[in-house]
Computed example of a mutant assay.
Amino acid sequence: MALTLFAHPFSAYCQKALVALYENATPFEFRFVNLGEEADAAALAALWPFRKFPVLVDGAAMVPEASIIIEHLDRHHPGPVRFLPEDSDAAIEARLIDRVVDNYLMTPMQKVVLDAIRPPEARDGFGVDQARAVIGTAYAWLDARLAGRSWAAGEAFSLADCGAAPGLLYADWVAPIPERFAALRAYRARLLARPSYARALDEARPYRHLFPLGDPGRD
């Protein structure tokens, strides 16, 4: 069955799913979704009423949420790179870091970004400060966790790295990673150099003007 990914190239969560697809050269059709277009928004809502992308269609199966998409690919379309380790403890570690990236990098990063597009009188400065503090805590935790590791959960590229690539890209744009977190900064550089993410990042470049805080001029 052909796979179809409903997504936008600039979305961090869409990039997360794309990294997994590109890692194993999994054939799929990319269905570009512009939520500003009524037809695109309606097509996405028909699949997933929350109107969030990415959504993967695999034959009769509709698979939402980037982490779930990656686990679906790992189970039903496996390739040389396995995103969940067979060892159960190692799999828990990969899932833990995936949750930290989504909840404590991606979510507060989006809080800062979305606040920038609010009308000035509706902005939440206190909430933005809290979000930046959460990002800082995540940086410290990840830096310590990465000590002695090549990838997030160990020596093998995993689910955790698929999300950390765009997560750290955009988080660093919002709150630059301090130089004292050398392990985290080096890990971010390895992610940027990974061919699967380099491809997703190149595909997103035409849309960098959409970043509400302005294109930072760096990857």
Results as ranks from 00 to 15, higher is better:
residue 151 W to Y: 11
residue 135 I to C: 01
residue 175 A to K: 10
residue 121 E to A: 15
residue 119 P to G: 04
residue 102 D to H: 07
residue 48 W to N: 15
residue 204 A to W: 08
residue 208 R to M: 14
residue 98 D to F: 03
residue 191 L to T: 05
residue 141 W to V: 14
residue 192 L to A: 12
residue 218 R to K: 10
residue 85 P to S: 05
residue 102 D to Y: 08
residue 4 T to V: 12
residue 108 P to L: 05
residue 74 D to W: 07
residue 54 P to D: 09
residue 30 F to Q: 10
residue 43 A to S: 14
residue 131 A to K: 03
residue 152 A to Q: 02
residue 52 K to F: 10
residue 170 Y to V: 11
residue 189 A to L: 04
residue 88 S to R: 12
residue 180 R to M: 08
residue 91 A to N: 00
residue 61 A to R: 06
residue 12 A to W: 02
residue 110 Q to D: 06
residue 60 A to L: 05
residue 178 P to N: 11
residue 121 E to F: 01
residue 128 V to P: 03
residue 20 A to S: 11
residue 122 A to L: 14
residue 146 L to V: 12
residue 199 R to C: 06
residue 100 V to R: 09
residue 188 R to K: 14
residue 60 A to Y: 01
residue 77 H to I: 01
residue 102 D to P: 08
residue 25 A to C: 00
residue 201 L to K: 03
residue 97 I to Y: 13
residue 97 I to C: 10
residue 12 A to H: 10
residue 5 L to C: 05
residue 49 P to S: 14
residue 209 H to S: 14
residue 158 S to I: 04
residue 73 L to G: 08
residue 60 A to M: 04
residue 103 N to P: 00
residue 167 G to W: 12
residue 82 R to Y: 09
residue 171 A to C: 07
residue 92 I to R: 13
residue 14 C to A: 15
residue 32 F to L: 13
residue 87 D to C: 00
residue 200 A to K: 03
residue 173 W to N: 06
residue 117 I to F: 11
residue 66 A to D: 10
residue 115 D to W: 07
residue 33 V to E: 02
residue 185 R to Q: 10
residue 62 M to V: 15
residue 125 G to V: 06
residue 24 N to W: 04
residue 10 F to Y: 12
